[in-house]
């Protein structure tokens, strides 16, 4: 039970969505865009957020589309993780998101909400971080396609009222050799101790991790692809390079143990990509 009142809007067009957002904001009230609502409801129940209105974007066609158009895959920001996984459109993303939360919740979480959320994991972002993807956002009343990294450096940086409409991924990235690993403290359904998505292109391996640090980040591509030195050394060098980003917490794991797990995971990754 949420202890405060708010209004509910479910616009049918992007225009309606931005208009209503603006209108509410003008009266000095706080609107929020509402995707799956899983984070919004949980945090509202515990009193960690407050707002005056939610704008549910799940009836906006642009936000719920999932299709391949010319040479890119378009994923609406309000597409649920289950839909992404079941569609098989992008296997690495499908595998990554089907380890977020649990299967039932995946039917409610939207990709946009996961990436825009406050939780430090944002696992759905990992595949987007390594595939040169773009996002379509509404900025100053207009749609813009911008590189994912322009708005996301582990945290999402949007101005008030800006909305992610879609994620755009070049078709060439969809079926490359990939690897996704999620390690938890013990149970399968848990926050990641470390979740890693990696692909191998002609230019080499790209990998992004979440759970290791206080936000998702890229592993140093330069080190991963130093093909002239042995993999074991590349593993050590990678770990040395990101030491300062690795967190320690009471609930999931200490920093030392995360390093141990990362080492195993990287070794496994190199092994998997052999010959790929």
């Amino acid at each position: 039970m949420i202890a405060f009142d708010f209004a509910y809007f479910r616009p049918n067009t992007l225009k309606e969505a931005t208009e209503i957002y603006k209108q509410i904001a003008l009266t000095g009230k706080t609107p929020v865009y509402y995707g799956g609502g899983t984070e919004i409801i949980s945090m509202a129940r515990t009193g960690s957020v407050k707002f005056d209105a939610v704008i549910d974007i799940k009836s906006i066609p642009e936000c719920t589309t999932l299709c391949v158009e010319s040479d890119r895959l378009i994923i609406g920001s309000a597409v649920t993780l289950t839909k992404i996984a079941e569609s098989g459109c992008f296997p690495l993303l499908g595998e990554t998101v089907s380890r977020i939360a649990d299967h039932t919740i995946q039917g409610k979480i939207t990709i946009g909400g996961n990436i825009a959320g406050t939780i430090i994991y944002r696992e759905a972002a990992l595949p987007l971080m390594i595939t040169n993807s773009k996002v379509k956002i509404i900025r100053k009343n207009r749609l813009h396609d911008v590189p994912f990294f322009d708005v996301f450096d582990g945290d999402l940086h949007l101005q008030k009222g800006e909305l992610i409409v879609q994620f755009l991924i070049d078709k060439n990235y969809l079926n490359l050799p990939y690897c996704h690993v999620k390690k938890t403290k013990l149970d399968k359904i848990d926050y990641p101790l470390l979740s890693m998505a990696a692909i191998k292109t002609n230019n080499g391996i790209s990998a992004a991790v979440s759970g290791l640090g206080d936000k998702p980040f890229l592993l140093p591509g330069k080190i991963l692809n130093e093909t002239d030195i042995p993999e074991t050394i590349r593993v050590d060098k990678t770990i040395a390079a990101i030491q300062n980003n690795i967190i320690s917490d009471l609930i999931i794991a200490s920093k030392e143990y995360r390093v141990f797990v990362l080492k195993n995971v990287l070794t496994q990754m190199f092994h998997n990509f052999k010959g790929a």
Binding site: L186, D190, Y191, I251
Partner: peptide
């Protein structure tokens, strides 16, 4: 207490 919800207080689930 750091783990006061089922998110962080882990119990056996189906299949485990």
């Amino acid at each position: 207490v750091q783990n006061t919800s089922f998110r962080t207080y882990k119990m056996m689930r189906y299949g485990e």
